[in-house]
Amino acid sequence: MVTVLVILILCLTAIGIAYLIHSGSKKDYVIDYETKNYNKSLYKGDTFAKDLCVTSNNVSLEGYADDDSLGAAGLFDIKNNTVLYADNIHTQLYPASTTKVMTAYVALKYGNLDDIVTISENAVNLDADAQVCGFEAGDQVSMYDLMNGLLLYSGNDAALAIAEHVGGSVEAFVQKMNEEAKALGATNTNFVNPHGLHDPQQYTTAYDLYLMFNACSKNPTFIDIISQKSYSATITSADGDQWTTEWIPTNYYSAGEATPPEGVNVLGGKTGTTDEAGSCVILYNQDMESNPYISVIMGADTKTILYDDMTALLAVGVGTKSSKN
């Protein structure tokens, strides 16, 4: 009887293998899954993913109309570990300055916010049209000020200065970004710089971005920084003179250029815009009971589309929950 059972199991196994080999669609799916490596560890369920929102598929949201012009969009209920909406969240896209979420994560994990950083020539060697805080080589500024310049104003010079100070070099810091991203489960992501200026080898997904942003949100300092409506930084120039500058958030909700829907409090977030990436934003939100949500849209054609779609998504996914309670 045991021998017959073993033979039966072997036969069924062989049939299954033969099916995978000879069935074109099934084979394509398996190879595609292995190639793209869609956060496989997350789908084991009981270990890594127990405190995360997880889905491998698109998730519809009643009352919200999909916008096919977007690269990807997602809404995550952090309290209940639930994906409320997902559209192409595992598609690899260019991140633009949403890259700085991972820069912040590494800086907060390995840096000292009380450190005084001297701005290098390399940190200010950027194209004239790049978003910058306005530092000059030799300026001295605290790490805390740099973090505000990074997250609120999206300064590319701040990103480079942080990378050099915390990592010893930009290259070493970026290596740490990739290591930490993989440790968080962001296996569809690759970084080659800490600021997000376009590089064809720098990419992420909306879901990976959620993983990184969610990890950052566990740090109260991160939430405190992104929640501000403005920040005044103090810079000491190379000749000893001090000056101050004010940074306004680049996300339209915090800057007062977009209005959150009723029942939704947008605490803050991180934006990103390049020609190749389109307009992107990831946000930390709360309903009227202060329950947390993370929302993300990538690849909008314009900022108007970006914020119109985000407002509609939050209204249905978060605002309606508040009104029902």
Score class of each variant (00 low, 15 high):
residue 232 S to C: 10
residue 206 A to C: 03
residue 206 A to F: 12
residue 189 T to S: 12
residue 298 M to A: 07
residue 247 W to D: 01
residue 213 F to L: 12
residue 300 A to Q: 02
residue 209 L to K: 06
residue 294 I to P: 05
residue 219 N to G: 05
residue 211 L to W: 04
residue 304 T to M: 06
residue 227 S to A: 14
residue 196 G to A: 04
residue 270 K to Y: 11
residue 291 N to G: 01
residue 304 T to C: 02
residue 293 Y to M: 05
residue 279 S to A: 15
residue 274 T to Y: 00
residue 206 A to H: 06
residue 281 V to E: 14
residue 291 N to M: 10
residue 295 S to H: 06
residue 290 S to G: 04
residue 191 F to I: 12
residue 215 A to E: 14
residue 200 P to V: 10
residue 237 S to K: 14
residue 206 A to Q: 10
residue 281 V to S: 09
residue 192 V to G: 04
residue 220 P to F: 12
residue 270 K to I: 15
residue 290 S to A: 09
residue 215 A to C: 08
residue 185 G to D: 11
residue 249 P to R: 11
residue 263 G to I: 03
residue 217 S to F: 10
residue 256 G to K: 07
residue 290 S to H: 13
residue 269 G to E: 06
residue 194 P to H: 13
residue 258 A to P: 02
residue 258 A to I: 00
residue 222 F to S: 06
residue 265 N to F: 10
residue 231 Y to R: 08
residue 207 Y to L: 03
residue 186 A to T: 13
residue 266 V to G: 04
residue 209 L to H: 09
residue 280 C to H: 00
residue 290 S to Q: 14
residue 201 Q to N: 15
residue 230 S to T: 07
residue 199 D to H: 02
residue 277 A to N: 03
residue 287 D to A: 07
residue 201 Q to Y: 14
residue 216 C to P: 02
residue 184 L to A: 09
residue 245 T to I: 11
residue 182 K to W: 03
residue 286 Q to W: 05
residue 299 G to T: 06
residue 236 T to E: 15
residue 274 T to S: 00
residue 248 I to R: 07
residue 294 I to W: 00
residue 281 V to C: 15
residue 293 Y to Q: 02
residue 194 P to E: 07
residue 216 C to M: 09
residue 237 S to V: 02
residue 184 L to D: 01
residue 261 P to T: 09
residue 297 I to E: 02
residue 188 N to G: 15
residue 307 Y to G: 04
residue 196 G to L: 03
residue 292 P to Y: 11
residue 280 C to S: 09
residue 269 G to A: 02
residue 297 I to M: 07
residue 186 A to S: 13
residue 263 G to N: 07
residue 261 P to L: 06
residue 249 P to W: 13
residue 222 F to C: 05
residue 276 E to M: 09
residue 289 E to F: 10
residue 293 Y to T: 04
residue 214 N to W: 05
residue 249 P to V: 06
residue 299 G to A: 03
residue 258 A to Q: 14
residue 211 L to T: 14
residue 297 I to N: 02
residue 253 Y to I: 11
residue 219 N to F: 08
residue 301 D to G: 11
residue 225 I to N: 09
residue 200 P to E: 11
residue 290 S to I: 01
residue 211 L to F: 09
residue 246 E to N: 13
residue 226 I to R: 03
residue 210 Y to E: 09
residue 271 T to P: 02
residue 196 G to F: 12
residue 250 T to Y: 04
residue 258 A to K: 13
residue 254 S to L: 13
residue 267 L to H: 00
residue 299 G to Y: 05
residue 182 K to S: 11
residue 304 T to G: 12
residue 251 N to S: 01
residue 242 Q to E: 14
residue 278 G to W: 01
residue 212 M to C: 13
residue 214 N to V: 02
residue 260 P to H: 11
residue 220 P to Y: 11
residue 205 T to S: 02
residue 307 Y to A: 08
residue 217 S to N: 10
residue 225 I to H: 00
residue 194 P to S: 08
